[in-house]
Design a protein around this nucleic acid. Structure first.
Length: 567
RNA sequence: UGUCCCAUGGUGUAAUUGGCAACACGUCUGUUUUUGGUACAGAAGAGUCUAGGUUCGAGCCCUAGUGGGACAACCA
């Protein structure tokens, strides 16, 4: 009753995309008993990256939208590249993103027997044959996209022969590459994938799940669609490069099906991010060559890297939502991701004060042995986060860049003779600059106004600037790691004549070994997010030990001042 | 000498065929501010790749062209 009213009066912008429209149409037409069942099918040969996150959101999200289910399926048909380590990391990353496959976890290898049986059926129907030619010859006979292929001499061999050879392939009688099983379709098709595609190859290799049980393994085109079928998938969502595979997908499905049910492949465009390289091959090389510290290096576009860096699962999901689902190839600005992260963290992050590039300040009129606690707000965006106490002492640290000797009048920070607010504490005025023999500033002398405790003056006096600070005696030392883009090129994958190693940004990691953070930071656990006021969002790195805190800067705050100065 | 896919501000997307195009990011102004953050207010920026066609009317439909992309792994 009132529900309808709400529906009519509130404009809830439905997030609809072309995939949803196609699914809706299928539902209206009553296809597949009006079921919606999707799957996320990673190959366990690497860590998931932000591009996979898009697919995960679309696969699980589409199912959720239509009250359906989404399976997790490991597409493990090539034992030479796949490992259990990857299976584990993939599961962890999907969970972290907040999706749940419940008990529906599958492996293509679960279906090896069924796949093999179905292959035998196709042989018997004269729709598949064993080809004993070399890979080179087969490839040559396939022709080119503009020239038709020619038939293999084995194409029309007797069924019995193929049956026998396939059985012996399976039994391990032949060496790798000795022969393959091919589907008999059309060597002159304008679609290369229909020119008698390979279904099985011989590969004597240990599989991470089936061990040495098999020495023939199904190819992607043969395995994928059939696994979709076995799992009851209705909508097989994948990226654009599989578009040309769809006729083959449908061909196999029609051969296998004995009911009206048909899975359907729908393709969408991948996610590309500026200054980011998404190819698994190159990511693997970065890891193996030690160009980064591992798959979870905070500069990596992997989900584990981004998680370690401090990006939140919510922000990644929000990014995917903002980017949308289309078939147009695009390049998403990294700034959109940054915005999503800041938007999320701004609401959630505990505020702390910390100094990255310390400059000592002596408060000459503050007692040397006194520790005065001042009250600070934990999160201005969240009243319920409460307040905490921060120690103020005779010696403090401020940020080097918060002091300037000959400051322009638009500079709102500390300078000789100027008064600024030390956030949550007092107004301080700089009286003296102490330099070493090289003229380097090593220390500032300031006086504080005891009347301004908390950061306001009873006489209504205003100050233009507010800066953060940390006690030089009551603090926690930390190593802070600052990150910048890993690549210097906006679209590294598109620089065909450059090796990706040449495109690496030499300044992508900057380590500040000695930073000072207020004592409250000790309450933070690994991966906990916080904001160092004015300096950005940070989290605790897993390299943290009992006697050394290591902190990552996830992202700086937006900085209009720096922008202005940069001009 | 092929088949298929795509084409809307800088970027990513939106627009039951019918009010010379909306939103987000980014950019720029201003207001507020104990973060030069946030929030708020506002501005600039496209006439929808091109040419035809259908229509009273086209970003949406049709045709051709142009540009970009995918396809010739015993990878997925």
């Amino acid at each position: 009753m009132s529900d309808k009213k709400i529906e009519n009066n509130t404009k809830v912008p439905k997030t609809r995309n072309f995939v949803h429209e196609l699914v809706e149409k299928d539902l209206m037409e009553g296809r597949n008993d009006k079921r919606v069942h999707t799957r996320f099918p990673p190959e366990p040969n690497g860590y998931l990256h932000i591009g996979h996150a898009k697919a995960i959101c679309i696969d699980f999200g589409t199912a959720e939208k239509f009250g359906g289910k989404c399976n997790l399926r490991f597409d493990d048909t090539n034992p030479s590249k796949e490992e259990t380590e990857y299976v584990d990391s993939i599961k962890e990353d999907i969970k972290w993103l907040g999706f749940d496959w419940e008990d529906r976890i599958y492996f293509s290898s679960d279906f090896f027997d069924k796949l093999s049986d179905f292959a035998v059926k196709l042989i018997k129907e004269k729709k598949a044959y064993v080809d004993e030619q070399s890979a080179e010859l087969i490839s040559k006979q396939k022709g080119s996209p503009t020239r038709p292929g020619t038939d293999s001499p084995f194409r029309n061999r007797p069924v019995e022969e193929s049956l026998d050879l396939f059985a012996r392939m399976k039994a391990g009688e032949f060496e790798n590459g000795a022969m393959v099983l091919r589907a008999k379709i059309d060597m002159t098709s304008p679609n290369m994938h229909l020119r008698d595609p390979l279904m099985y190859r011989i590969m004597h290799a240990e599989h991470h799940r089936t061990g040495n049980k098999w020495c023939i393994y199904p190819m992607y085109d043969y395995a994928h669609g059939q696994c979709d079928y076995f799992e009851g998938i209705t909508h097989s969502l994948c990226t654009l490069e599989f578009e040309v595979h769809r006729p083959l997908y449908d061909w196999f499905a029609n051969e296998l099906a004995d009911t009206e049910y048909r899975p359907r492949q729908i393709e969408f465009s991948r996610l590309n991010l500026t200054y980011t390289m998404m190819s698994k091959r190159n990511l693997l090389a970065l890891v193996e060559e030690g160009l980064v510290s591992g798959w979870d290096d905070p500069r990596m576009p992997t989900l584990s890297g981004m998680r370690r860096r401090g990006f939140t699962a919510q922000s990644i999901k929000n990014l995917v939502e903002k980017v949308g689902v289309t078939k147009t190839k695009g390049m998403t600005d990294f700034a959109l991701l940054e915005h999503a992260v800041r938007e999320d963290l701004n609401k959630k992050a505990q505020r702390l004060m910390g100094v990255l590039n310390p400059l000592k300040v002596i408060v000459t009129n503050f007692p040397e042995d006194k520790v005065e606690m001042v009250s600070a707000v934990n999160n201005h965006e969240d009243e319920s986060a409460g307040r905490r106490e921060v120690p103020f002492t005779h010696e403090l640290y401020i940020e080097k860049e918060d002091f300037m000797e000959d400051a322009p009048k638009k500079y709102f920070r500390l300078s000789v003779g100027r008064e600024v607010r030390f956030k949550y504490a007092y107004f301080l005025t700089c009286t003296n600059v102490i330099k070493d023999e090289n003229g380097e500033i090593i220390e500032l002398h300031c006086t504080y106004d005891p009347e301004t405790k908390g950061g306001n003056s009873p006489d209504g006096r205003k100050v233009k600037g507010t800066i953060h600070w940390v006690s030089a005696t009551e603090n926690v030392e930390a190593e802070v790691r600052l990150y910048d883009r890993l690549f210097n090129f906006e679209d590294p994958a598109n620089e065909k004549d450059k090796d990706f190693r040449e495109m690496l940004n030499p300044d992508s990691l900057k380590v500040l070994p000695k930073c000072y953070i207020e004592p409250f930071v000790t309450q933070m656990k690994v991966l906990d997010h916080f904001q160092l006021e004015r300096m950005g969002y940070f989290n605790i790195d897993k390299d943290t030990t009992a006697n050394k805190i290591v902190v990552n800067r996830t992202l700086s705050l937006r900085d209009n001042w720096a922008k202005k100065m940069g001009k």
